[in-house]
């Protein structure tokens, strides 16, 4: 940790994209219908593209000569700064979609706010990503509504997914000194937008936000769930077993 809040912040944004993109990409060839294989690959591609921008920027800010690949493939789990939501396992397709929706509903307003950041580089990356995030949100919102208000089974699966994942949403908009150094007081507006938007959509989807309000945190400061270590072991295998090799 360099103590530079911009570095830490760029890692948080980039690691969210990387870990979610990595999870989503594992569906390639296994989705419920061909159009979903194609759409999920698109989402994963966008997220990996955004990862390259954020982590590339983080490496520059850090100034130790590490590039996006070094940061992605050569850090241990405790050095990752993604929120807990994105590292939750794919589960069934309903869990994957709900995780995506809960992330997109935060990611899009966040990038919109960051596009106005005083830090030019942060603003640039956000500007490049925000259109993709708008498309992701549009898509995941539509599917959550249709499946929530679909058959009994699709409703039950989406409700179960929401019950399991809601507890990880508080961390998205919970702020600390690092976030505030970059985005200032913009976060309170994002929290409000997030809560309003998700409750409106869940209403339409006939889904109910769980009553228990305890929110899990830790990912943003490097304290993750068990799932992350296993995922990194898979993702990093070639770089770890062939140190210094070019690919």
């Amino acid at each position: 940790m360099t103590g530079n809040p911009i570095y830490e912040f760029a890692l948080r944004m980039g690691d969210n994209c990387l870990i979610l993109g990595q999870n989503v990409s594992a569906w390639c060839g296994h989705a419920p219908v061909l159009e979903e294989d194609i759409a999920l690959a698109n989402v994963a591609l966008d997220l990996i593209g955004q990862t390259r921008m954020w982590l590339g920027f983080a490496g520059e800010v850090e100034g130790k000569g590490r590039n996006a690949d070094d940061l992605a493939f050569l850090r241990d789990a405790r050095a990752f700064r993604n929120c807990l939501l994105v590292e939750q396992p794919n589960g069934d397709f309903g869990q994957t979609l709900m995780r995506q929706f809960l992330f997109d509903a935060w990611h899009h307003p966040m990038l919109k706010a960051l596009a106005g950041s005083a830090n030019v580089r942060v603003a640039e990356v956000a500007e490049k990503s925000v259109k993709e995030a708008a498309y992701h949100l549009d898509r995941s919102t539509g599917l959550v509504i249709r499946l929530g208000d679909g058959s009994d089974e699709s409703h039950n699966r989406m409700q179960a997914a929401l019950d399991g994942l809601w507890r990880y949403t508080g961390e998205l908009y919970a702020t600390d000194a690092i976030d505030e150094a970059v985005i200032g007081r913009g976060f309170s507006a994002i929290e409000e937008q997030y809560k309003n938007y998700t409750s409106k959509i869940f209403d339409e989807a006939t889904l109910t936000i769980p009553e228990a309000t305890f929110m899990h945190k830790g990912g943003k400061s490097g304290l993750h769930s068990e799932a992350l270590g296993a995922m990194l072991a898979d993702m990093q295998i070639l770089q770890r077993s062939h140190p210094g090799a070019q690919w």
Partner: peptide, 30 residues
């Protein structure tokens, strides 16, 4: 044909290779 290549998406050695492989498997679905 998506399956044998999809098998390496999560283990692709760089971010660029990962993006290219996802795009390729996506083309196959297309």
């Amino acid at each position: 044909g998506q399956l044998p290549e999809g098998n390496w998406i999560t283990r692709a050695p760089t971010l660029e290779r990962k993006a290219i492989l996802i795009a390729k498997v996506q083309d196959e679905a297309g």
